[in-house]
Design a protein around this nucleic acid. Structure first.
Lengths: 333, 333
DNA sequence: TTGTAGGCGTTATCAT
DNA sequence: ATGATAACGCCTACAA
């Protein structure tokens, strides 16, 4: 291994192997187009010099970064983990890498981030649960980079979409609780765009079915167990007659369950609780939580496949994919 | 905005603004070295063409990717979230971007991943809780890229380290439980390298203090609430006399607490439980969990600062940083 | 099978 | 203050 200052280049390898730079490139990328003997010499030279190809150079030359960017509101919280994990895994298997950007909740910062990402010319941009501002949408469209919006089904996608209907979730959960005999329901929920569609659909459906009282409690940004506890406590204070609560995450639901039990309320006999996400702990909670299963893993894998397909010029048959959701009934309802 | 196929380049902007490519570059990067009038014309041309600089080209030219890579075992689970979030945020503030790689638990895959990352010539590589194999360590050293290992204090760091002592944690927790009068302790823990040092230290210290029985229960890979429940159930079966349990994560601890309560055991009166991580839910659990606070946010920020300092040629005074930990006593002990 | 020439888009350097 | 030239490291196209 050469201990010199700068990393070795194809030229260095070529010199040492007694061939041209092109032959080195070929030996590395299309080994069959090179004599076995040449191949061996090149490989030896590579090992000896500790040569590692420079991805910026090849990316520039080929106009392909072999990299996909994912933009998400936050990495904290269990909501998007499966998605990002599966995105990274699926991409990694094909030799793509994953660039992560946190948009936070600041629109200006989000625009800056998107611009920064576009500068890298990634093969694709995956927006995770992002309600992109107009400036962002425009910048993305202009970039001509394949874009996959996820975690929702927007009416007017930038490019491709993989998600599910939050309206359908709100509607189905209200119907489910009503069918179980609940007439006084409440919702404990985050307050982003998607949460608002869900909540609206939940309210509308509950009313349509004749549920008597519906109360909403909005949590501050992160959906934590603590917010669930406090949310339920607040709700019970003003509406002690509530018998069914829809929580916009399993963390909130677990918190609500803990708070209910702490107050001596039996779940589900006196209070039914339904969560969302089907995190691993939902099944193991006491009681096991009824929840809305969202297949983050599938969404991530699909998003990865779509961007790679586009990057490689393969035709993409379906640019809008509804992966749906699944109401998992356990013992909290 | 030019609707043509390929993105605009400095050349295009230069042509439209009636200046040279160099002037465009200067106008964009060192605006003061350019006439106000020129600046204006360049900016107009940029807007008109929707020009976005190509980071691969500039990275190649300047040998600086303005990118840092983070390698972690998994994105799933609450353990490393704070760290990654703070890493991304700190880097983002200085215009750096974050590349994410999941090493999983497969050494071969990890090596491939590291090689892939090195090809991008990032300004730094942050290893999150990674016990790098020898091949990996060698590849990293040879790359001359600044490396920060985190979440532990290794004896022989590749380069820089920001972490805390797992041995000290194991020791302190055993001492803590002993001081509270516990003589039959157990540990429910994951089984990676760091967990093993912790466990060993816990056992050693407990014995040294004369605790009578110590049982260990190893969970499979992910530290979930369910594992905590099952772990405690198993432990109680063989050793019903246990009065204190150290769990290697708050999720495990919460699971243990739920299981204990489900069996009618009072926490902490009949069973003391201590977790690790001080996740947000630890404070809000019932009872609130005693836990070992780890400052992932600080570790992430420090790791980011160190890599950027190195990348920018600034001197790094301290290459080994022990951020310590903090035993937070709540009501589960 | 292998090599030569040239360019991907940007910026440092050295003129002017 | 601005421009011409060259080079960063790689790979496509063409030639031998």
């Amino acid at each position: 291994m050469n201990p010199s200052r700068k990393p070795a280049t194809v030229q260095d390898v070529a010199r040492l192997a007694g061939v041209s730079a092109m032959t080195v490139s070929r030996a590395l990328n299309v080994p069959d187009k090179v004599t076995p003997d040449t191949l061996r010499r090149v490989r030896e030279a590579v090992d000896q010099l500790g040569y590692v190809p420079n991805a910026m150079a090849s990316g520039l030359r080929m106009s392909r970064a072999r990299m996909v960017a994912a933009l998400l509101p936050t990495l904290v919280g269990p909501v998007f983990q499966e998605l990002v994990e599966s995105l990274a895994a699926t991409l990694g298997r094909q030799g793509y890498q994953l660039l992560i950007g946190q948009t936070g909740y600041d629109a200006a910062q989000e625009e800056a981030l998107v611009r920064g990402v576009i500068q890298r010319r990634p093969d694709g941009i995956v927006l995770v649960g992002v309600a992109s501002s107009d400036g962002v949408r425009q910048a993305l469209r202009a970039s001509k980079i394949p874009v996959v919006e996820t975690w929702d089904l927007t009416a007017d996608p930038v490019d491709m979409v993989v998600g599910f209907s939050h309206v359908a979730i709100g509607r189905d959960v209200a119907a489910f609780l009503h069918a179980r005999g609940h007439r006084q329901m409440a919702i404990i929920t985050a307050d982003d765009t998607r949460a608002r569609s869900r909540t609206q659909a939940f309210l509308t459906q509950a009313q349509a079915l004749g549920a008597e009282v519906v109360e909403r409690f909005l949590t501050v940004a992160p959906s934590t167990l603590g917010e669930g506890r406090r949310g339920l406590a607040t709700l019970l204070q003003s509406h002690p007659g509530i018998t069914g609560v829809f929580c916009s995450s399993d963390s909130l639901a677990l918190g609500a369950a803990i708070e209910a039990q702490h107050r001596g309320l039996k779940v589900p006999q006196q209070l039914a609780i339904i969560g969302m996400g089907d995190q691993s702990f939902a099944r193991d909670a006491q009681p096991p939580l009824t929840t809305v299963r969202l297949d983050g893993t599938r969404i991530g894998a699909l998003a990865a496949e779509l961007t790679m397909a586009r990057a490689e010029g393969r035709a993409v048959e379906q640019t809008v994919v509804d992966v749906g959701f699944h109401l998992v009934e356990r013992e909290s309802t």
